[in-house]
Amino acid sequence: MNNKRDSILNRLTMLDFMAVDLHLYLNTHPNDKEVIEKYNEIIKEAEEVRYEYEKNFAPLCSFRSASSEHHFNWINNPWPWSRKFNYYIEGEE
């Protein structure tokens, strides 16, 4: 992966996706302690990566993330639908 921004976003996308899929499982298996534990682990890790991304690059969430001081950087390019925003998936199998 050629830059730090892409590699952090890549990692966050993976962790957030695992959270999405485990979340759907837990909706219909609300008493599965083993999976709740995994879900919580992933949420915790994703939170750290999200913090890292927002600190170094850009706010992620509308009306949840703080802005940079002098310019409201929420509006900054690139937006997620553009080629430039995206990256090729990498990481260990």
């Binding site: 996308t13 639908w81 995206n86």
Partner: peptide
């Protein structure tokens, strides 16, 4: 809803 400024799965198409 809260919008998250990223895609669920990356889309980067050259052609």
């Amino acid at each position: 809803w809260v919008y998250e400024k990223k895609l669920e799965f990356p889309v980067k198409i050259k052609k």
